[in-house]
Amino acid sequence: MKQLRTGVEPRLLVLLNYLLIQEDFFIIGGMNMLSLHYISQILPSLLVGTTMTLKIFCWTLIGALPLGMIFGLGLVSNIKLVKYFLNFYVWLMRGTPLLLQLIFVFYGLPIVGIVFQRYDAALFAFILNYSAYFAEIFRGGLQSVDRGQYEAAKVLRLSYWQTIRKIVIPQVAKIVLPSIGNEVINLVKDSSLVYVIGIGDLLRAGNVASARDVTLIPLLLVGVIYLLLTAVCTYVLRRVEKHYAYWR
């Protein structure tokens, strides 16, 4: 080895080293002892990253779903000022990249004296962004409920909130579910944008390990974990859709 090293370019050495780790991985499909050992070494840090990704995912949904629903009600309300404001907000949030919004909140706002912690900045930007998408989805859902349904409820003397609760929300939920599902899947992947403001999410964990150990394995694992997360989401969403499938 020593002899070899003298004559060989350092870059080639890196490549050799790389192949040494990778070779078996690719030949035996990654199930040999060496790469299993390596995976078990990096998995904890990837799981820490996954936890962060899931935290951002969950809190964004918890914040953005109700906000989006309220904004959606506002978008179909008769109050002009509310409608103009919400339309502007939706236009702004959907018309600019989420990445820009993240950078703006974390790196931009401190310039004018508004400082967020990384994590708070991420949640702030994500909730505002996703609320806009959800608001548009709920607006569409609310508008597709026949006006006759409100009138039928009215002549039966149901109050506004009884009507919303018993008639409108179940119908809107069924209508919006597929679109909401799309956004939920997007959110799993969009959460990786927090990378840019230095949050240790799943993608960052994988990238760090990959750069440090000069191997593809962490990045492949990251891909597998994202696939698992979206698969779970897809499954849960299907179940919820099925729950609403008993009527048409």
């Binding site: 349904q149 039928a152 002549v155 003397r157 018993k166 009527w247």
Partner: peptide
Amino acid sequence: GVVFQDYQLFPNLTVLDNVTLAPQMV
């Protein structure tokens, strides 16, 4: 009471619930 031209039954409720919803709530 009104019977609408297009009936406007509540599609998310069973026949029974369509009929009993308002008497119970109102």
